[in-house]
Design a protein around this nucleic acid. Structure first.
Length: 563
RNA sequence: GUCCCCGUAGCUCAGUUGGAUAGAGCGACUGCCUCCUAAGCAGUAGGUCGCAGGUUCGAUUCCUGCCGGGGACGCCA
């Protein structure tokens, strides 16, 4: 639009009043009666100029050269707002950019091609993925999408904690079930895993190895249990994730940090910083020097490292691989790790605040206000796979993304199962599909719909103006959502825009109001409305693409399939 | 006790460089309608923005304190 022109006009007016170098910020008022663009410069300058804001606003308004800058009208309102109205041609000109950019509309190069790693999910291979992992996956993937769209070179990374005490508990749990399989009385150890899947793994071991390990609890037996369990569970998690349409560029194994000696060398490096001390037989890092609540143990008195040490080694590795920006998506219950990992890498010379964390709260599934738990395969929790099977991938992803990460998420199962456009996901998808169906009805390939020779100024109804304004906000929105690490802003935008689209579409229902239909008789108007429809389709599709959600050309309901 | 997050309409939630009459969906209520395929559409009601101070021309937004909910405070991850 003509934001730049208005800024210049205001600055020119201000110069006439003896005020130089003012940053004029324009925003779109919520209420369309306040014009298309507005500024609060008069309010901001009141103090500096020692004059009432209203008087300043009026003087600016009177000095604005509306003709030179092609401004339709300017007015003063409230305590001193300056409101500008644009011609419908100026508003509608935004469509040209949308259609020209197509798949790339909304992209920017803010990241300048710099590398950034987004680590998420990073579940231990000790059981099926649960809803917390699902939310983390959906948020992390959307964040990666946002960064990609804003010009970063993004790597999606998964850190497998395949070493350490948790895995030992898993191996012991499988061992116990294996013994039980052969009728021996063995109990799952304290802190072990109770889920049904442990028994399934034990049964498969019994099938493969027979009773070879009955009553035997040595290195080899536990090693086989461990290896089989980890391999099985990793394969299962990988399948869940790929069905959830999440794909990682790098799978990083914690065990590799032990194998190549980097855990040990990290201790040595940290000792070299002078921030390390020995106490009670353990090795500590003085993380309080970097703002942590208390100092942390790196090497336990039994000589084994805590998880903290490989974590530091891992993040040093990220940096050394060229990722000078890193985002870790984690459950809020892990927030204690933030300060200590940051302290650890800072001690080794990395800048404060590396890596950056996005913490998310937990998920609760409800139907009619009551908590719903699906199955018991995993023991006490609902798995991601179960929820996906129940409501579908698009709905699951969207619901996980539509709330800001640091708020608790109530997953409304009744709403998720609703296939009308009460369901926010379907609302957006319907709006997209409706545009596609118009193109089909018109007998046009959507790529053939353009703005060449089309007079867009005929898009002059209030609904059309507001819709176009919403569409042209998309690039700013994407940039902002990426900066704020806030995928939910994309959801909000899509829902709001889809609402505007749907009412515009319905208002043009040919049986009721043929003059407002896209496919009107008048060639000029039809061409312009087709271009608008095409713009809508592009923006909705691009928004959904960032989130990793399908933009269908046609909606298929369950009963259509059944019938 | 210390630290982090949250507290906005009956419910679920938006609202970031502080701006006009605080928004959306669900639910409720009132009308319409069978359509450019969509169990749909249009509208109405509903608010001391947790409480109390402070900063400001202006605070849901920033600061302080308090109350309420969740989480973390391990030589677990």
């Amino acid at each position: 639009m003509s934001e730049e022109a208005i800024k210049q006009a205001v600055q020119q007016a201000l110069r006439g009043m003896g005020v130089e170098d003012v940053d004029v910020r324009l925003d779109q008022p919520r209420d369309p009666s306040h014009g298309d663009l507005a500024t609060t410069v008069a309010l901001t300058l009141a103090k500096e100029l020692g004059r009432p804001p209203l008087a300043i606003a009026e003087e600016i308004a009177s000095r604005i050269d509306t003709e030179r800058f092609a401004i339709e009208s300017v007015s003063v309102a409230g305590p001193g707002f300056l409101n500008f109205k644009l011609s419908s041609g100026q508003v509608a000109s935004g469509i040209v950019d949308i259609i020209a950019a197509d798949d790339d509309y909304g992209r920017c190069d803010e990241g300048g091609g710099e590398s950034i790693v987004v680590e998420f999910v990073s579940a231990n291979p000790t059981g099926p993925l649960h809803l917390g992992h699902g939310r983390q996956g959906a948020i992390g993937d959307a964040l990666a999408g946002l960064l990609d769209w804003t010009g970063w070179s993004v790597s999606r990374e998964y850190y497998y904690n395949d070493a350490g005490a948790q895995i030992d508990r898993l191996a012991e749990s499988v061992w116990a079930r294996y013994q039980q399989h052969f009728g021996r009385e063995e109990e799952i150890p304290e802190g072990g895993y109770q889920g049904k899947y442990v028994g399934e793994i034990a049964a498969s071991l019994a099938e493969e190895h027979g009773d070879r390990f009955v009553g035997i609890r040595d290195e080899e037996a536990l090693g086989v249990m461990r290896e089989t369990a980890v391999r099985t569970l990793r394969a299962e998690q990988d399948l869940d994730l790929s069905d959830f349409r999440i794909h990682f560029d790098v799978y990083f194994l914690e065990s590799s940090l032990y194998d190549d000696g980097r855990v040990v060398s990290t201790v040595e490096a940290l000792r070299g910083t002078g921030k390390v001390f020995d106490l009670d037989g353990a090795v500590w890092l003085r993380t309080t020097d970097y703002g942590d609540q208390k100092d942390r143990v790196m090497v336990k008195s039994d000589g084994s490292p805590t998880y903290f040490l490989p974590d530091v080694a891992y993040h040093m590795d990220k940096w050394e691989r060229g990722f000078h920006h890193a985002i870790n998506v984690q459950g809020a219950d892990h927030h204690g790790t933030m300060a200590r990992v940051q302290a650890g890498v800072q001690a080794l010379g990395l800048p404060a605040g590396y890596p950056e964390y996005v913490l998310h709260q937990m998920v609760r599934v409800e139907r009619d206000g009551k908590e719903v738990k699906f199955s018991k395969r995993a023991g006490s929790y609902t798995t991601l796979r179960e929820l996906m099977a129940e409501v579908g991938v698009d709905v699951t992803r969207y619901f996980f993304q539509m709330r800001k990460p640091d708020a608790h998420l109530v997953f409304d199962l009744a709403l998720a199962l609703d296939q009308s456009d009460k369901n926010p996901v379907y609302k957006v998808q319907y709006a997209h599909a409706r545009m596609c169906s118009i193109f089909k009805k018109a007998g046009l390939e959507r790529s053939s719909i353009g703005t060449d020779g089309v007079d867009l100024s005929v898009l002059a109804t209030d609904a059309e103006r507001e819709l176009i304004k919403a569409l042209t906000q998309f690039p700013d929105l994407v940039r902002n959502a990426a900066r704020l690490r806030a995928p939910h802003l994309i959801c909000d935008y899509l829902e709001q825009t889809a609402g505007a689209v749907n009412s515009w579409y319905h208002a043009g229902n040919p049986s009721r109001n043929p003059k407002l239909a896209v496919l009107v008789e008048d060639d000029g108007l039809r061409g312009a409305r087709l271009a608008l429809s095409r713009s809508v389709q592009i923006v909705l599709r691009n928004g959904l693409t960032i989130l990793g959600i399908m933009a269908p050309e046609q909606m298929i309901r369950d009963e259509d399939v059944a019938g």
